[in-house]
Design a protein around this nucleic acid. Sequence first.
RNA 1: GGUGACGUGGGUGAGUGGCUGAAACCACCGGUUUGCUAAACCGGCAUACUCUGAAAGGGGUAUCGCGGGUUCGAAUCCCGCCGUCACCGCCA
Length: 425
Amino acid sequence: MLELHYIRANKERVLQGLKTRNFTEEELGIIEQIIQLDDTRKDTQTELDSLLAERNQLSKEIGSLFKQGKKEEAESQRERVASLKARASELEEKLRSTQESLAEQLYKVPNIPHESVPAGSTEEDNEVFRPWPGELPKLPEGALPHWELAQKYNIFDLDLGTKITGSGFPLYRGKGARLQRALIAFFLDEAVKAGYEEIIPPLLVNEDTARATGQLPDKEGQMYYVERDNLYLIPTAEVPLTNIYRDVILDEKDFPIKLTGYTPCFRREAGSYGAHVRGLNRVHQFDKVEIVQFQHPDKSYDTLHEMLAHVEGVLQKLELPFRILRLCGGDLGFTSALTFDFEVYSAAQHRWLEVSSVSNFETYQSNRMKLRFRDGKSTRLAHTLNGSALALARIVAALLENNQTPEGIVIPKALQDYTGFGLLD
RNA sequence: GGUGACGUGGGUGAGUGGCUGAAACCACCGGUUUGCUAAACCGGCAUACUCUGAAAGGGGUAUCGCGGGUUCGAAUCCCGCCGUCACCGCCA
């Protein structure tokens, strides 16, 4: 969430940012509300603190009066304390409820978009930050979409997944399974080569963790939830990886911290059905290698571009046509300040498929997480960033479609060491 | 799942009702000394909120796993929860 002192000191900038996110005049009122609640909070706290200070002082006096045997004086002081206490508990209650509504309001305010974020309301308005420089691949007549290639080569099976679990849970088999494993290993190796530490995190997380990265309270419906144990299945490795540093105070010299992790990702995707979600285009479970960085605020945008370059490099090695979008205010994630999406071209579907999303959250997550670093005598919030490098299911879809030949599916050179075969047939 | 013990600052660990935001030691930082390193000595060393101040700083409140209770006063007593460890049971 946004820092209160930031909102107070940069009200105009905050309002401007929310406008980029298409907040209406009425919705913008939340900022004034928050400031007023914070005023109340401060006043209440100040009053309560001085009351408690008085009580502590009296208590000390009572102690020494008892020691001196001045019982009567002590008794009268005790009565004074009793009246203080009544007022104090009123104030405590007021403070508690004020803080509660303050937090509730703050949770409703998304991150302030970076100044480069274009205006716009839908994905149509996203800016093509880097178009694909070459020609888009053209497949001969009769080229198959990936779900038909899957049947032809028996590499994954959605019906079996449906039988075992439900729709949207693909089952990979044979060379298809091997291709998954190859891609995961390839992506992890690339990240490790780029200096990221490999992590295997838990796949279920608790409430505190889900709240810290911003999945709760607003994206509750996106996650699978294990009620009995009050745990959530992760929608992305970002959640456990980022939370490693929850409630941590770093040294400036610790930056940058670079983590990578492969995990399956679970998403309910409630309400999205139709032609565009066929095959592997949108599934409830998919594999992904994530990269995460923690960085000094002054350097986080350099880091964002470094991460972009990493993802670019990986896609180039896979020899897939891709473009980079800068998300507009309306499409930008709730917690992000700036996001670039990578899309690969799926030649049989004639569509761009999103395969990576690289974002700078600035202090939005770290404020929820209390992730700080020492800056001289005081502490400051660190910046958090993450990106997919990469999400498997759609990469597989594009790979299958774009590389189909009459003989089989050609595996890009960079992957062949991992698959152990050059042609999937 | 059962039973028992325990949960104090970066670490070890003292502290069973007021003088304890918390001894001591280690680590760390600054300084003195030093041919270099080491040692020795001196000093510093939690976080959040808040008031005050131009600032440096100063004052206050809260925090000894978390939440509640008793009390004029709680790290210390009571209750609940969570976690750790040990043993038993079960088990990849």
